[in-house]
Design a protein around this nucleic acid. Structure first.
Length: 317
DNA sequence: AACACTCTCAACCGCGTCGGT
DNA sequence: TACCGACGCGGTTGAGAGTGT
């Protein structure tokens, strides 16, 4: 078939080959103009979403229904969140991806305002890049365990550190932000594996809290107080001490191991120390993962934006 | 300043699935 | 039951921005 720009397209076996949208002539492609955006917004405001092909026609847009749908869902929808992926969202993405793989739309359902496209892009540009740096496949057990044992615990540390810093700096103001953050901290049932995740997801449904034994009272040499994560936030170099002594198989928590078919990760629950026997440079991984966390764009300065506060408040309801 | 290279992300593509006829 | 159009998903692309030399 010929595409709208008159270029030959040899792949014509798509199920949409004969659809109206592709029979139309003079269709536009490429970046949307402001006028097109307004047309689409206006039409949806009046008539609602759905029936994208007829919507495109009726709205006077020389676009395919697919294109209109994509533009609306990924960009124009009023509840689309824009801006950097927060630390909490990063943590969610890593964890949910470990469960579901490339089920981007499913993952996006747990990140309000984020689109599957955005999450997919994040994964490809950030996570896969670092898998490449580590010279391992993004789907390999080594990489997944690196995420689980190093990056995700580090993300949690940074989240807690940022929360603690914010709450301590605003302790006297009793602002909503401060109370929200404190609530988050106190709801992290340290040692029980119950981490309060964004969007109301409880940590023991995930693996992340199960592989951070440095947070468990019985394992942590620094966890003097379960409600004071500020005292537990270790400097980067602490990673070496902490993660090389993960007593993976000795966690008393019965939920410690993932159940097959749920997390699907029980087969990967080996100690990082085991990697030394496999010739994996775990210190290099640690270095790279720390670098990644430093590069990831989110600092404690912008961690609790009004958006995030609202977001977290929703989780507490 | 100019060029090369890398990164980001909006948009497109092909395919599978679903629902209506 | 088969067919067809619409929809949604995951993979991929490419333009523009950003950064390094």
């Amino acid at each position: 078939m010929m595409d709208v720009e008159g270029n030959s397209n040899s792949n014509s076996s798509s199920s949409t080959t004969q659809s109206d949208e592709e029979m139309m002539v003079d269709l536009r492609r490429g970046p949307w103009t402001v006028e097109e955006d307004f047309k689409l917004i206006d039409y949806i405001a009046t008539h609602g979403e759905g029936r994208w092909n007829s919507l495109a026609r009726c709205a006077g847009l020389k676009r395919t229904g697919k294109s209109c749908r994509l533009r609306w869902l990924n960009y124009l929808r009023p509840d689309v969140r824009r801006g950097n992926i927060t630390l909490e969202e990063q943590l969610m993405i890593l964890e949910l991806h470990s469960r579901w793989g490339n089920r981007w739309s499913k993952i996006a359902q747990h990140l309000p305002g984020r689109t599957d496209n955005e999450i997919k892009n994040y994964w490809r540009t950030r996570v896969q890049k670092h898998a490449k740096q580590l010279k391992c496949d993004v789907n390999s057990k080594q990489f997944k365990d690196t995420m689980r044992y190093l990056w995700m615990p580090r993300l949690i540390e940074r989240i807690q550190a940022a929360a603690a810093a914010t709450s301590s700096s605003t302790a006297t103001s009793a602002s909503p932000a401060a109370s929200t953050n404190h609530h988050l901290i106190n709801n992290n049932e340290v040692g029980t594996g119950n981490l309060v995740m964004p969007h109301g997801v409880i940590g023991n449904d995930f693996g992340v809290s199960h592989v951070t034994p440095s947070y468990t009272p019985e394992n942590s040499s620094t966890a003097a107080s379960s409600d004071s994560f500020a005292t537990q936030v270790s400097p980067v170099s602490d990673l070496t001490t902490d993660y090389y002594h993960i007593p993976v198989n000795h966690n008393p928590n019965p939920d410690y191991l993932f159940q097959a078919g749920q997390g699907g990760y029980s087969e990967s629950m080996i100690s990082p120390a085991g990697y030394f026997n496999q010739g994996l440079d775990f210190q290099a991984m640690e270095h790279n993962s720390n670098q990644w966390l430093m590069e990831s764009g989110d600092t404690s300065d912008n961690l609790w934006s009004p958006e995030d506060i609202w977001f977290l408040q929703q989780q507490m309801m």
